[in-house]
Amino acid sequence: MELDESSCIAKIKKLPKTELHAHLNGSISQNTAKKLIDLKKLKSGDNSTFDLNIPKLASNDLPGCFELFSLFHELTDSPEAIYLATCDVIKEFYEDNVLYLELRTTPKASFAGHMTQKSYVEVVVKAIEDTCSTVCQKMTVKLLLSIDRKRSVTDAEETMKIAEEYTTSTTKIVGVDLSGNPVCDARHLFPVLEYVKKAGLNLTVHISEVPNTFEEVEALLKIHPDRLGHGTYLHPSKGGSEKNYDLLKQLKIPLEVCLTSNVISKTVESYESHHFPLFRDIGYPIVLCTDDKGVFDTTLSKEYYLASKYYGLMEDDLFNHSFNSINYIFATEQEKCQLQELWKQQNNKNN
Rank of each mutant, 00 (worst) to 15 (best):
S6N: 12
S6D: 12
C8H: 15
C8S: 11
C8Y: 15
K11E: 10
I12M: 09
K14N: 13
L15Q: 01
T18C: 15
E19A: 09
L20D: 03
H21R: 12
H23L: 08
N25F: 10
G26T: 10
S27C: 09
I28G: 11
S29M: 04
S29C: 04
S29H: 09
Q30P: 03
N31E: 10
L36G: 08
I37Y: 09
I37Q: 10
K43P: 01
K43I: 08
S44G: 00
D46C: 13
D51R: 00
S59M: 12
N60Y: 05
D61M: 05
L62C: 11
P63N: 09
G64H: 03
C65G: 14
F66V: 00
E67S: 07
H73I: 00
T76S: 00
T76L: 00
S78Y: 07
Y83V: 05
L84M: 12
T86W: 11
Y94D: 10
Y94V: 05
E95V: 00
E95Q: 14
Y100D: 04
R104P: 04
R104A: 01
A109C: 10
A109N: 08
A112H: 11
G113R: 14
Q117M: 08
K118L: 14
I128W: 09
E129C: 00
E129F: 01
C132E: 02
T134R: 12
C136D: 10
K142A: 07
I147M: 12
D148P: 06
K150W: 13
R151S: 15
E157C: 13
E157S: 14
E158S: 13
K161Y: 07
A163D: 04
E165P: 03
E165W: 03
T168G: 00
T168E: 10
S169V: 10
S169C: 05
K172L: 15
I173K: 01
V176A: 05
S179E: 02
P182V: 02
H188M: 05
E209M: 08
N212W: 04
A219C: 04
I223T: 01
I223W: 02
H224Y: 08
L234C: 11
P236F: 08
G240P: 09
K243D: 07
K243I: 11
N244T: 02
L248Y: 14
K249P: 05
I253T: 14
I253G: 06
I253C: 05
P254R: 06
L255P: 14
V257M: 12
L259A: 06
T260N: 06
I264D: 06
T267N: 10
V268H: 12
S270T: 14
Y271S: 04
S273P: 06
H275M: 06
H275Q: 11
H275K: 02
L278F: 11
D281F: 01
L288M: 11
C289M: 03
D292F: 09
D297K: 02
T299V: 11
K302A: 03
Y304D: 05
K309G: 01
K309Q: 15
Y310P: 12
Y311G: 10
Y311A: 07
Y311W: 15
M314Q: 05
E315I: 05
N320R: 13
H321L: 14
S322K: 00
N324F: 03
S325M: 01
S325Y: 01
N327H: 08
Y328P: 06
Y328E: 04
E333C: 02
Q334T: 09
K336R: 14
K336I: 03
K336N: 03
C337K: 09
Q340I: 11
Q340L: 15
L342I: 05
L342V: 07
W343F: 15
Q346T: 07
N348K: 14
N350C: 02
N351A: 11
